[in-house]
Computed example of a mutant assay.
Amino acid sequence: MKDVMELNADKSAWSHLLVLVWPAVMAGSLAMYWWLIGPMAMSYEMAIQFHFLGLLVGIFILELIIPYHKSWNKYDRQGWNDFLYNITFPAAQIGATAVALAVVGAQASSGSESLFNLNLPFVLELIIMTLIVDLIWYICHRSFHTLPMLWKFHSLHHNSHQLHVLNNARVHPLEVFTFFLPIMLVVLVIDVPPALLNWYFAFQLTVGLLTHSNVAVRSGWLSYIFNTPELHHWHHSQIRDEHDNNYGSVSMIWDHIFGSYLNPKDRMASKEIGVSTYVPEGWFSQLWAPLKRSSRAKVPTQSVVDK
């Protein structure tokens, strides 16, 4: 299949169909989730696992058919590590949820004053929750970029020199825990209904896998609202002035508000991605590296001018 550079130059009807990829995957993903918890009557715990596997397979196939960059489909010798991170990622989320439940417990809002007990339309409640959670995500994510102690952990995620659906979860478990603990604490305190929370995480999972995929898309105006692959390619740039932007998880509202939205119209993000901070090859070594005082994973200083 053609590389994205060839597709952008191609004036055929096929190239214009790329605008349908993002909404089609999103619609198909949410339809699959509805089917699992509705007609299939699965529990949330079981449904989210099948939902994840279905997305993983579907996006992997798209990466083979319409790759953003064909060179990103080459094996990068981190496959086993990525597999392990796809196990520790949800484990850390579960751990953060357990701690949040232990901390909040019976002190969670019982009801009437919660935004989510006013019988608002479901879609409006989902939008409100997305904005709240994304604000917490934004603060955490930006902190992991700007504070050297936290960058030692986050540099693992930015060390990849190619994006594909498996390395979405290439994140240190302590970072995952740090992101999700405040999110779950707030979710419990404001008494978000479980059904709403489950739908949000199904939506967030789809966005996360898509943004880290090697699938050619043209998101257009959707990139002003949602986190899309085109925006996230800038976030994984080797240049600090570029990768210190687009921090949102699902929406881009907080990036617009705080001035960290980057989406140039005159050029595409380079396919040469990944910062050059030191990250060892072995999985256990990667987990241990940021805990060492002598870790060399410092916040990069390269700018657009330096490039």
Rank of each mutant, 00 (worst) to 15 (best):
P264F: 01
S249A: 15
I66C: 10
N214R: 13
P148S: 06
A102K: 07
Q78T: 09
M252V: 15
L18P: 07
M40P: 05
P121A: 00
S213D: 09
L196H: 09
M5L: 14
V123D: 06
W137L: 00
N86V: 01
M1H: 15
M184P: 06
E45H: 08
M40Y: 08
L209I: 15
V186R: 12
R218T: 10
P280D: 05
Q162P: 08
H233L: 13
L197N: 13
L64S: 04
L36F: 05
F179E: 12
S29L: 04
K70S: 07
V21Q: 13
F284C: 15
V103H: 13
T228K: 04
H157F: 06
V176M: 02
I183D: 07
I87Q: 03
I128P: 00
S303Y: 10
C140H: 07
S109F: 10
M26C: 06
W199C: 00
L120K: 14
L150D: 08
E63F: 12
I61M: 11
L120H: 09
S260N: 08
S71W: 10
L163S: 02
H158T: 01
S223E: 03
L135R: 04
A9V: 09
L209H: 14
H69C: 12
L56C: 12
A269E: 01
G111E: 03
S295G: 08
F179M: 14
L53V: 00
W234H: 03
A202E: 10
L287E: 01
P39R: 12
P148W: 06
V279D: 06
L262Y: 14
V217P: 02
Y33G: 05
D306V: 11
A27C: 09
S251G: 09
D241N: 11
H69E: 13
A96D: 08
L210G: 02
R293S: 15
E63A: 10
M5Q: 11
P90I: 00
A195Y: 08
A96H: 09
K70V: 04
I257Q: 09
K298D: 14
V123K: 00
K74V: 12
N168E: 14
P193R: 05
G95T: 09
E6L: 10
A106G: 11
K74A: 13
I253E: 01
T130I: 07
I257K: 05
H145N: 07
S270A: 08
T97Y: 09
H145Y: 06
M252L: 15
A47F: 01
F201Y: 07
W234D: 02
G105Q: 04
V279P: 01
I253K: 04
K2Q: 11
N117R: 04
W288I: 13
S249G: 15
W80H: 08
H256M: 08
L30V: 08
I136V: 04
